[in-house]
Design a protein around this nucleic acid. Structure first.
Lengths: 243, 243
DNA sequence: CGTCATTTTGAGGTATTTCAACGAAGGTGG
DNA sequence: CCACCTTCGTTGAAATACCTCAAAATGACG
């Protein structure tokens, strides 16, 4: 993370603005990428933001004026419950969309985890654009559908009883989500342990003990606080699947 | 529910085919209803089905060919986990859409709970229609977004530790979802206790004890297995909110 | 190199899960 | 219309796993 950030802007521009997945069925794979023209249209209404870690982008229940797309970095969307507990609804990485609202207000609070680059899309302009470009809108629909699936998966993760199993599922979710290192045995974890706890609906202590258990069982090696190395993918997968 | 079903077919046709909620922000409220023309277009590719209870509509991982919209009745979407446990992802009522797929395959199994009437929409035809009617697609987008919010809420419900609180949240979710009796103090529960258990990620026994506790505390009275009467809306709401 | 936040470790408390058995409800056939 | 049977729901008691509180240890940062 502290390594040279390279010519970030150029790589950010050429990367797919939105990474989506076929909505319903046999949509051709390439349908999930934006055309040059579409990217141009979207960029025309977008503001590029470069932000430091730990910055709150918007608060829950605040009037929603923009939708965001992650260009680079990690963001978390969460809600603080009356009890004082915090529930992380999702971690967002490159290509993810966030900022969905209900009745004109954001549902979650969004905060940057790392240094990030974002695209900020004013809702009114985006709505206009979507209503005039059905193909583009279809890609957004696919994207939102994907988020929906993620949310359903998370509900399954959280419903597990054993902390180690939940953590195993979490690690594999992050691993498959961060397409970069899909063939690597390392998983980068930009978020803190307590963020993970809030995502998994466990106490911070339980997460700590779960990481210890995964190490003790030689499934994963945690190297520092922000990197995990998979030692036994097979057994880790088995643990994750043993829901 | 056992009361006269009235001229069911006509009321089904005139009811909004899809009940959606503003996608992002200040979309006018009426934007969530289909126009006559749109309903016509959708109905043109739809097949109306009338099905008995306990019928499986499709299985998890089966090739996805259609999207469904509930006309009347209740449906559940669930997944059976390797452990033998079952997780209900959502209960679907009038106006709800289900049958979302990933890579051409359904993610959940769908089964009717009551006698239902459904609209079956072939995916290829629907895709074609959506790509040619951006306004219609926008309404679908709103609908999917709404499902996403529901899924996030469910994740919060499931993350609670106390069974009674989870049940309270569930009751209120169902109550607000079934727009019919929003001002009534009764909540109809077409699903079984074990369906509720699978939705809340509790054991059947825990649900049973939770209902007993809600009755003991005089918050709710369960009249038969499929009807709940709210006795103290204020305290029930407080319990649900005490996450 | 010192300070502060984060994470780890330990011990006891509490809620749900499991296992087992009973009771109630609904549907079928005689 | 009643008896039977199967499914569903309720209740009790012990076991498990996480939560909470407390304190030490590790790591990040200026």
């Amino acid at each position: 993370m502290a390594k040279r950030r390279a010519p970030a802007s150029s790589s950010g521009e050429t990367a797919p603005l939105i990474r989506a997945i076929p909505f319903l069925g046999s949509t051709p794979a390439d349908a999930s990428r934006l055309t040059d023209r579409q990217r141009q249209d979207v960029l025309a209404i977008a503001t590029r933001l470069r932000l430091p870690p730990r910055l709150t982008l918007y608060h829950e229940a605040a009037p929603a004026s923009s939708l965001f797309v992650v260009g680079e970095g990690a963001v978390k969307a969460f809600r603080d419950l009356p009890s004082g507990k915090r529930r992380v609804a999702s971690f967002l990485f490159r290509g993810d969309v966030f900022g969905l609202a209900e009745n004109g207000r954001y549902l979650n609070t969004a905060q940057t985890i790392t240094h990030v680059s974002l695209y900020r899309l004013p809702i009114d302009k985006l709505t206009h654009l979507l209503k005039h470009d059905a193909e583009l809108q279809f890609k957004v629909l696919c994207k939102v559908t994907h988020e929906l699936r993620q949310a359903q998966r998370r509900a399954i993760v959280v419903s597990r009883r054993d902390a180690a199993g939940r953590l195993a599922m979490f690690l594999l979710m992050i691993k498959t989500h961060l397409i970069d290192d899909i063939h690597s045995d390392t998983i980068s974890l930009p978020m803190s342990r307590s963020d993970i706890a809030d995502y998994l609906a466990l106490s911070l202590e339980a997460v700590s003990r779960a990481t210890a258990e995964l190490e003790r069982r030689k499934l994963v090696k945690f190297e520092g606080r922000h990197l995990a190395r998979v030692l036994d993918a097979k057994r880790l997968g088995a643990l994750a699947a043993a829901v």
